[in-house]
Computed example of a mutant assay.
Amino acid sequence: MYPLARPLLFGLDAERAHGLTLQALDWAHARAPSLLPSTPAPLPTRAFGLEFPNPVGLAAGLDKDGAHIDALLALGFGFIEIGTVTPRPQPGNPAPRLFRLPRHRAVINRMGFNNGGVDVLVRNVERARRSGPGLLGINIGKNKDTPNAIAAGDYMYGLSRVYGLADYVTINISSPNTAGLRELQEEQQLRQLVGTLREEQERLGAKHGRRVPMLVKIAPDLSERDIEACARVLGELQVDGVIATNTTTSREGVEGDRLADQAGGLSGAPLLARSTTVLRMMRTRLPESIPLVGVGGILSGADAVAKFAAGATLVQCYSGLVYRGPGLVGECVEAIRRRRFAPSRGSLPPDA
């Protein structure tokens, strides 16, 4: 159905189309599930001590309040990540704040962590049926008006509120749309913040009787020196995983587009090369015990395979869904399956 719907959606403001798409998914899931794509055959993948039904996930940002969990899981994702959610509600940045660049298969957003606050998300997660095998990640951030000096308090509160509901939790310190947030990736601030959250994670694990993995999401705009420092800190603190990467402030690959000067983070096809480079660099610098999630620029099964070749254990997509629709999920799963079970070089053909 998506090839028929896309021209209509692209005729609307991008944020309005986003909302209508989620409403349509909810309707189809509840009343006409045959309209949804068929679920990919299982491709079990283990990471962070969790068993994922397949390694293709939905990146954070599509469903900030967790209001569409069941419909999104019905699209065949092995896992979905909701949020980013903040302790208190906030409206985000003024509209318009979401822009498509069709010629480049790209998106620019400056949403600014618009969400109803963590209490709303918790209620939505508690109401979700979650009848399928897909796992749930929850992405947490700080409120816009919380100074970095006390940002740990926002993250600790968010972690404590969602801990009992999530299969894993992601710490978002890499969005370009909250002023000063990326400064938390600086080595000393990162060590202090993540160290504090690791202690809270262990305390919550003892309280709840189960350990929920904690991941950190990084930016694609880090220098090589910053990547080395980041990997050193995250490795020493033994985080459970790293998501590489968030959106970029660079406009490489979209030069000359009439929307290229819009403020915000760029995602989609132009991000693929840079995000995959950062992924590869992190893989060579982190301990093998810390899995990586590759995200950024996946618009085909081949793009997903490129992330695995660079060292990913799981992948996520978001902007690719805007241009390809939910059929992208199954395409990526099947491409990864072919790569996983491809005969090794030099082996005999099956009928030899």
Rank of each mutant, 00 (worst) to 15 (best):
H208Y: 15
R210S: 11
Q201T: 04
H208I: 03
S223A: 15
H208K: 11
A219P: 05
L204D: 07
S223L: 13
A219S: 15
L215T: 09
T196N: 06
V194A: 01
R198L: 09
G205D: 06
K207F: 07
T196W: 00
V216S: 05
K217T: 08
D221H: 13
D221C: 12
V194F: 04
T196I: 04
K207L: 12
E202H: 09
I218E: 05
K207V: 04
R203A: 09
R198F: 05
G209R: 09
L222S: 10
D221A: 14
E199V: 10
V212S: 01
L197I: 02
Q201F: 03
R198K: 14
L222R: 11
E200A: 14
G209V: 08
V194Q: 03
A219V: 11
G195F: 01
K207E: 08
G209F: 05
I218W: 09
T196L: 07
A206E: 15
H208F: 15
V212P: 00
L197R: 02
P213W: 00
Q201R: 09
P213K: 01
R210T: 07
A206C: 10
S223R: 12
G195P: 01
K207Q: 12
T196P: 00
K207Y: 07
A206P: 04
G205N: 07
G209Q: 12
S223V: 15
P220L: 12
K217G: 05
P220F: 11
L215G: 06
E200S: 11
M214W: 01
G209E: 10
L222W: 06
E202P: 02
R211W: 06
R211A: 11
L197G: 01
V194M: 03
H208W: 15
I218Q: 04
A206H: 08
G195T: 03
R203L: 08
P213S: 03
V194W: 00
P220K: 11
E202C: 05
A219G: 11
V216H: 05
E202N: 10
H208R: 10
V212N: 00
L215I: 12
A219H: 03
P213A: 01
K217M: 11
L204W: 04
L215K: 02
H208A: 15
R211T: 13
P213R: 00
V212K: 00
I218S: 07
V194R: 00
L197M: 03
S223Q: 15
K217V: 09
R203P: 01
R210I: 06
L222M: 14
D221I: 14
L215N: 03
A206D: 10
H208S: 13
V216K: 03
R210E: 08
V212G: 00
A206F: 04
R211Q: 13
A206V: 11
G209I: 10
S223T: 15
M214K: 02
R198A: 08
S223D: 15
E199G: 01
D221M: 10
E202Y: 09
G195V: 01
V194C: 02
S223W: 15
A219R: 02
V212D: 01
P220A: 14
M214E: 07
P220C: 14
H208G: 06
E202R: 12
S223E: 14
A206K: 14
H208P: 08
P220G: 13
T196C: 08
M214F: 06
E199S: 08
R198W: 04
E200V: 09
V216W: 03
